[in-house]
Write a protein that binds this DNA or RNA. Sequence first.
DNA 1: ATTGAAAACGGACAGTGTCTCCGGTACGGT
DNA 2: ACCGTACCGGAGACACTGTCCGTTTTCAAT
Lengths: 195, 195
Amino acid sequence: MTPATPADQRRPMRADARRNYDLLVAVATELFREQGADAPMDDIAKRAGVGPGTLYRHFPHRDALLAAVVADSIDALYARAEELLTEEDADEALRLWLVAATRHAGICRGLAASLVSSMYDEGSPLRASCDRMHEAGARLLRRAQQEGSAREEFDAAVLFELVAAVAWVAERSTDGLASAERLLPALSKGLIAGR
Amino acid sequence: MTPATPADQRRPMRADARRNYDLLVAVATELFREQGADAPMDDIAKRAGVGPGTLYRHFPHRDALLAAVVADSIDALYARAEELLTEEDADEALRLWLVAATRHAGICRGLAASLVSSMYDEGSPLRASCDRMHEAGARLLRRAQQEGSAREEFDAAVLFELVAAVAWVAERSTDGLASAERLLPALSKGLIAGR
DNA sequence: ATTGAAAACGGACAGTGTCTCCGGTACGGT
DNA sequence: ACCGTACCGGAGACACTGTCCGTTTTCAAT
């Protein structure tokens, strides 16, 4: 699969457009990681050496750009879920995926917030990513409820929200990921009844 | 105790200053509740009928204003904790306080974020409120660990972060508090081992 | 190779919000 | 009533977002 592509078009993109598109995604990835998902759009355009007009034509909103930036790693997370579905211990598989998902949402400061927002926004460009995470979590949770000892009363939406919440806390604590790793056990123990 | 007061000064505030101070807190309370904790500062000044200069002299940062606004309800939350310390069932007391704390953090959109930030920021004006909540939670948690069946491995910091996280999710879900009430059980079950 | 229409470029700009500076005002002690 | 001082509040510098539109580039047809 070619890397992130704008909505399919019968006519291929013009060469200069394609070049700028790819360049912008690369620069945004860099800047989001450095400064968080609220890095100034103008700075992204500037660093890519294009005008703001060009940036906004390719990505009308910040979320459109963010979606292009995280698409790859969402794919990886989805693949990880499929891999974990073959793990014998269903509870452990769920636990491991929660860790992976939290780590993913920590790619850049502000991502968790955008993902949660997109969950309630039908038209968000991040919606596709959100749905993929949602589905990946749902499959692991369902199996853990049937084969393992995950409590019946929770669903994938709760799972998603809790992961986002933990990632969000981790974003703003000084000790970063360490904080997430203290919180996740509390969460896992709530979801999964002791054996 | 007189309501929220600026840092004690030997000289009492001048009458006009005092009037503006109180007015600003009242207006901010109103606007934060309506529009969230990121309501434009200029709007607050405008609605209070003062210039932005006046607002910023009394409250140099948004957090200083926010701190004055939430001080009272933090006191109430602290009092609630003391009350719950007399409840027979230590686990149930903790659970009830978590609900109260989550509800408190939901006073206005954006408050949870500011509270968590202040937890890692020595100089934040919200720090005092943060510490009070922290301490209230710590006492209830300690008792639930000794007399009830709260797990030993968690501490008040985790408690605080989890409450903030749940409140944060609730802020941005369309179904608001209902969402928090779906999430809290997962959290409680993680903190408190089944009997 | 030339050409011309469509597509893309990118700078200027309007709108919004934050925060500061400073000339003028009004308070309150004497 | 006076005067020094603390306070007031508007003007404006600065930052970011997103749009508009005249200019430039590309590429396919000739």
